[in-house]
């Protein structure tokens, strides 16, 4: 076959990324959701590493290491601590039932693949099919944020969305400048801290993490 082996590995990792996005969509437990998020981070880090190796761009090694540190170790650990402190290990509540969500997910994937097709025609790099996958996983994470009722799964969805964007950046354009990547990584970390504080405030005000309570806050 004409496709080099590294590209095959990147394709495989991209598919795993999409698969994990789907698995997160179908997940009923918060703890397994966080575990899946860590696995997605690992797949992302591995794919960044392979891109770095195949294109010999050294700054991508740093971003792979950064992803590994941040998204596989620190963020899941933070989230674990959060749900321990908040004592929220209950099942995730969804607005739409899960099979329907999965069907909507499939439609989103087809939509994303079609949307990305003309964009990838412009690209000459061999990894152009990956834009569609990255777009699909961003949309799936967005779907997860929309369909979940509780705050913690929504935040995991947000972080997973960032994973998809990061994957699009590394695979399609071989990465952003290191400064940008560092900035994003810091943003995500700080964002998680802020979300943590937000969770506590939410619980203190409403005695629950159900964000539908926030609708009461508006003036009529």
């Amino acid at each position: 076959m004409s496709i080099p082996f590294t590209t095959q590995i990147i394709n495989l990792l991209a598919s795993i990324l999409l698969l994990i996005a789907f698995a997160m969509l179908s997940q009923r437990r918060i703890l397994s959701l966080i575990k899946l998020f860590a696995w997605q981070g690992l797949a992302l880090s591995a794919s960044t590493f392979v891109v770095a190796y195949s294109t010999a761009q050294h700054h991508l090694y740093y971003s792979a290491a950064l992803t590994l540190l941040l998204k596989v170790l620190i963020l899941p650990w933070l989230l674990h601590r959060l749900i321990h402190k908040l004592n929220v290990k209950w099942d995730v509540e969804t607005l739409i039932n899960i099979p329907t969500t999965m069907l909507v997910g499939i439609v989103l994937v087809i939509f994303a693949f079609n949307l990305a097709a003309p964009i990838s025609q412009l690209s000459e790099s061999i990894t152009r099919g990956l834009i569609g996958i990255a777009l699909a996983s961003v949309l799936l994470s967005l779907l997860m944020m929309i369909t979940r009722r509780k705050a913690v799964p929504q935040v995991v969805g947000f972080l997973a969305m960032e994973n998809g964007l990061f994957f699009a950046a590394t695979s399609a354009t071989h990465g952003m400048p290191l400064v940008v990547e560092l900035g994003i990584a810091l943003d995500v970390l700080v964002g998680t801290f802020i979300f943590g504080i937000f969770f506590f405030q939410l619980r203190e005000t409403f005695d629950s993490l159900d964000i539908t309570h926030m609708e009461k806050l508006k003036d009529d």
Binding site: L18, F22, V109, F113
Partner: peptide
């Protein structure tokens, strides 16, 4: 079924 359909879609997208 969804996984199998995803496999098909990915085949069309990546050609592999």
């Amino acid at each position: 079924f969804l996984l199998a359909v995803l496999g098909l879609l990915i085949h069309f997208l990546l050609g592999a």
